[in-house]
């Protein structure tokens, strides 16, 4: 495993820990999009079906279980915890996230590495992950005061995506037969969504004005 991949996994892990910290210690999920969290829970559930069929490494298995368990528990907390759910910005978090799922499924049926159930689900999870952050970005744009933890959560997620792109470049040049077009294209689309957002985020921060994304 190269340094970019490890750093990518660690920033991903930290992003989840930051979110769990906010939920457990402050008992708040203000500024966090339940829509995005639900999409992530679906992303990891459909991607890690190979937990039952393929063993890669202990590291791989543990990380998969962490991402599965944390994403499902975050959704549970936001929906059902009697204190946490009260801080959820329900009226602002209006993105119709289920509409993203059908096109991703159709694309996965058409474009996959192999036409098997596991591979179609894997491709679906990649396409869905690419757009899963959209409800969160829309919510951030609407929320007047973004607290530090929410800002750090999105920053860590963006870093995770950027580091994975570096990891792919590194692997392409150092490993033979390492070509994964589906992963790369959906990963780059996802990274560009973050980059575009951060551009406006830092602009508004620099000029000290409320974040306004172009329509």
């Amino acid at each position: 495993m190269n340094i970019f991949r490890l750093a990518g996994d660690m920033t991903h892990l930290f992003s989840v820990l930051v979110l769990l910290l906010k939920i457990h210690t402050i008992k708040s999920c203000a500024g966090i999009s339940l829509k995005t969290q639900e999409l992530y829970a679906i992303v990891f559930t459909t991607r890690y079906l190979d937990l039952f069929t393929t063993y890669i490494s202990l590291y791989n298995t543990i990380m998969k279980l962490i991402f599965l368990g944390s994403s499902i528990s975050i959704v549970w907390y936001m929906r059902h915890h009697k204190v946490v759910r009260r801080s959820y910005d329900k009226d602002q978090d209006t993105f119709r996230h289920y509409l993203l799922m059908l096109p991703c499924l159709l694309l996965a049926l058409l474009i996959n590495e192999k036409f098997t159930f596991l591979e179609v689900m894997w491709a679906f999870s990649l396409y869905l992950e690419a757009v899963a952050i959209l409800p969160q970005l829309v919510l951030l744009q609407r929320t007047r005061n973004i607290d530090n933890l929410t800002g750090q959560y999105v920053l860590l997620l963006g870093a995770y995506r950027a580091l994975y792109v570096l990891n792919w470049i590194y692997r392409y040049f150092t490993e033979e037969n390492y070509v994964h077009w589906i992963t790369w294209v959906s990963g780059i689309v996802q990274t560009l969504l973050y980059a575009d957002f951060f551009y406006y985020y830092f602009q508004s921060w620099k000029n000290n004005v409320k974040l306004q994304l172009p329509a």
Binding site: D9, D50, T53, T54, I56, N60, K114, W122, N167, T183
Partner: peptide
């Protein structure tokens, strides 16, 4: 038995 595609990334 078909070979499954191995995904070693998360």
């Amino acid at each position: 038995e078909e070979d499954a595609v191995q995904h070693d990334e998360l």
